[in-house]
Design a protein around this nucleic acid. Sequence first.
DNA 1: ATTGACGGACGTACACCGTACGTGCCACGC
DNA 2: GCGTGGCACGTACGGTGTACGTCCGTCAAT
Lengths: 217, 217
Amino acid sequence: MPAEPLSRPRIVAAAIDLIEREGADAVSMRRIAADLGVGVMSLYNHVPNKAALLDAVAETVLSGIEFTDDPDADWTDRVRMQARAFRQIAHHYPRCTMVVVSRQLQSTAGLLPVERALATLRSAGFGGEEAVRILRMFIAYIVGSLLREVGVTPTFAPVHNTQADFERVDPALFPEINVLAAELSSCDHEAEFEFGMELLVQAIAVRREHGNEREKK
Amino acid sequence: MPAEPLSRPRIVAAAIDLIEREGADAVSMRRIAADLGVGVMSLYNHVPNKAALLDAVAETVLSGIEFTDDPDADWTDRVRMQARAFRQIAHHYPRCTMVVVSRQLQSTAGLLPVERALATLRSAGFGGEEAVRILRMFIAYIVGSLLREVGVTPTFAPVHNTQADFERVDPALFPEINVLAAELSSCDHEAEFEFGMELLVQAIAVRREHGNEREKK
DNA sequence: ATTGACGGACGTACACCGTACGTGCCACGC
DNA sequence: GCGTGGCACGTACGGTGTACGTCCGTCAAT
């Protein structure tokens, strides 16, 4: 007597749960079925195959982005907020992040963030082509940042101090690394992310100014 | 009569070859052994397990970066060159790129690029901590860019035009996407990469100016 | 020269994986 | 009453990573 009749959302939720608990490697159709107390092949009545299931996982995680867009705020603040929203879901589903960025999703799941971002950039005065370029640049930076974050803490396990690794390098061959061993081994991801984001925001801000000046001329 | 006696580099080379020919999904110990004309378990005399083999693949690919660093050039040009060198290996081993960025490598393989980059930034006048932050930002951007490039062309197969996908969205729900469908569906990766890199270079250039001014004050 | 140890190539075996296919149950429209 | 279609499920097949045991060539010590 299954209280709930095994639907696609339930399967996806179980998959996300499993990934967060035991990592992406632990995912198998048998394991998900066992967690749901269900036969393995029953899953295939709702999901065509494992790849599609993982796509659905990515889609679901991505659609969990919460936008608190304030149309009255400065456009730079809106850009900042949207970038942070992107990063926050990665903190909510840390183990799933690798799954999300690994599979390129050509579905409509990530479309709402794209729409919002483009609208913000257009309202800031950027042209269409330029807005797309800027958006792609931001996405690249965000994805790369998240990849490092989840890579360095794949299990949130004891972050075995890699400091020793950096201090063990040959000072003659790698003088800079040797001097900066402390800075290289520690990493405040939040501050790091904000630093890069601020640089990007200011870069496109000055680019907008130049564009406006050129228009006036 | 094995002409060459099956060494670890030979195994890694076979793995890279296989990945480039048939994609990362085709990699299996049995398949690699077959390509080498060798029994499966013989591989384990040189490689502890499959994960270590893939780590070695990442390490080997990464160590193939060619640096043509010109110490006399402007520091911005040196940064540009190093970023491009990073991207070029991804073009040389397109299918391996996902493997490289997927596994976080804490080995000494990627250390030389790090050393060069830090030296360049330090010589440009950046402080130690700031140089590390800037380097991390660049790496995030580059990794994110490469991930999009290899994601969009996982097999270099016919890039089934996703234009239709963008044009099919509801214009009422996604007006910006609808208007910019053409820009979103086409992507000149090279130009896109250069655009973002230029923005980053100029951003840190103005940051350096501000820092210098503050020092003078 | 004989022997012993040893490293590497290999086959077998096991647990697990994704999933194609067939079977049975149950709720429904006629 | 009777199809009929959807859904849960079991079985089975080909593939995977790898632990373990076996065999054999080489080389050091006796």
